[in-house]
Design a protein around this nucleic acid. Structure first.
Length: 424
DNA sequence: TCTGGGGTCCTAGGACCC
DNA sequence: TCTGGGGTCCTAGGACCC
């Protein structure tokens, strides 16, 4: 059996943990740049605020219902996520962290346990240890566990845990489950399935294997098997190294000058380098892209990217920044108002063993020591306290986050201020 | 005025090999 | 008149996830 544990309204719940006066207040958390709604408390969902809605379209609703609005604080959410995952790991045989707010638990070895009671204990303990409410779906396959989790969230009677352990329960659950809510069935697939008269997960599970294979390829066939209680999505190693790394942001305002955009791109390249070093990898391929704001139809539009392969793979911030600058100079055109840029590392190779180059002008061992020292300092003192000068301080491109909460758990100044000032 | 960021997997088709 | 069979690798594009 598998369990899927999912934090309820995760970002909104994180804000609430440190601000208990918001217990019954509708909360929304905005995307980077305070653009769209990316998380909502139950009260905000009840007001009809849709996921992904642009914040500026909701102004009236927000004022009318006194909705608490937050910029996203990924430092806080990341730290809270660690706490939840650590608690889960201490209570269960094996967890696989699937996203910032979700984990699969392999329940092998608990065959003789009452899984509902066990699940409720897990849910209560996570809540007590971290303040974050979670729900748990338990079933024979991952896709069914995802479905069970939906039911656990939807019906308070379940006390946070829904168990699908018989065929009877499975079929009943499938029959009431809209096809587009199935894990792995997105917009295009559900449109296609609806066209063929399939409304529920049950309808889909009743189609023949060959029909599913033909219409939705092997991807759909796997989902079909899992709905029919045949597990075929294997446990994954959540610590696996990434195959692609990307840093991109919209700018806080529209930019026109090369130097302004270069500063942002240098910063994104440095960020990719840090991510590479963290997972002990080297970049082999790199792309840089720029684009104007597609929503501004009155402006001339431009989008372009350029790719390069490194002759010697690297995770050195200076080198990646220099290459990013070259790429940017190939695609930058004056006369446009740029909204967004990004750096993508497309091919990645492990940093050991290394293949050295006889004619390499750089002493890579020396550079490695330097970069390690910089990383250690920045881990202790805060990100990018030590940086390459061309990263600058981003006064022009930096994103908007006007409603940022304090980093209650990670930033010394914030930890002190909450203990001294806040009526905890 | 204002609209996010970061990933994965699969397939088809072209280029190439013997 | 008749023109093989079996592979690999790479890329772009499309689907999905949170």
């Amino acid at each position: 059996m598998y369990a899927l544990v999912d934090c309820n309204n995760f970002y909104a719940s994180c804000e609430r943990v440190f601000n208990p006066s918001l217990l019954h207040t509708p909360i929304v958390v905005l995307s980077n740049n305070d653009g769209c709604v990316v998380a909502r408390s139950q009260e905000a969902k009840d007001l009809g605020i849709p996921m992904g809605a642009p914040a500026f379209q909701l102004r009236e609703l927000i004022e009318k219902h006194k909705v608490a609005v937050f910029s996203s604080n990924y430092t806080l959410y990341g730290d809270m996520s660690h706490r939840v995952m650590n608690t889960l790991a201490s209570l269960t045989p094996h967890i696989e962290v699937y996203s910032i707010d979700e984990a699969f638990v392999d329940l092998q070895g608990l065959e003789h346990t009452d899984l509902t009671l066990y699940g409720q204990k897990v849910v209560q303990t996570v809540r007590r240890n971290t303040g974050i409410p979670v729900s748990m779906g338990i079933a024979p396959t991952k896709v069914l566990a995802k479905m069970a989790n939906r039911y656990a969230k939807k019906y308070p009677g379940y006390k946070g845990v829904c168990l699908i352990d018989t065929d009877e329960k499975r079929i009943k659950a499938l029959q009431q489950f809209p096809i587009e809510d199935v894990w792995g069935i997105g917009r295009q697939y559900s449109k296609k399935l609806r066209y063929h008269g399939i409304q529920t997960a049950y309808d889909f599970s009743q189609k023949s294997r060959s029909w599913v294979r033909r219409e939705l390829t092997v991807v759909g066939e796997r989902i079909w098997s899992e709905l029919n209680a045949q597990a075929c999505i294997a446990p994954e190693d959540s610590a696996a190294a990434k195959k692609q790394i990307c840093t991109s942001r919209s700018f806080g305002s529209l930019l026109t000058e090369f130097d302004e955009i270069y500063e942002a791109v240098a910063h994104y390249a440095a960020s990719c380098a840090v991510k590479l070093r963290k997972q002990k990898s080297l970049a082999v391929g790199m792309s840089v892209f720029v684009m104007t704001n597609p929503f501004r139809e009155q402006d001339p539009q431009y989008i372009n990217s350029r790719h390069i392969r490194l002759s010697i793979p690297s995770n050195d911030s200076s080198e990646l920044i220099a290459l990013a600058k070259q790429l940017l100079s190939l695609i930058y055109l004056s006369g446009y108002r740029y909204k967004k840029a990004g750096v993508v590392i497309t091919e990645i190779t492990p940093s050991t063993p290394t293949q050295s180059d006889l004619f390499d002008p750089i002493d890579r061992n020396k550079r490695k020591d330097l970069l390690q020292a910089v990383d250690r300092l920045n881990d202790r003192m805060g990100s990018y306290k030590i940086r390459i000068a061309s990263q600058g301080y981003g006064r022009k491109w930096k994103l908007k986050n006007e409603r940022l909460s304090p980093c209650y758990t990670t930033r010394l100044e914030d930890v002190i201020s909450i203990h001294c000032d806040a009526p905890v």
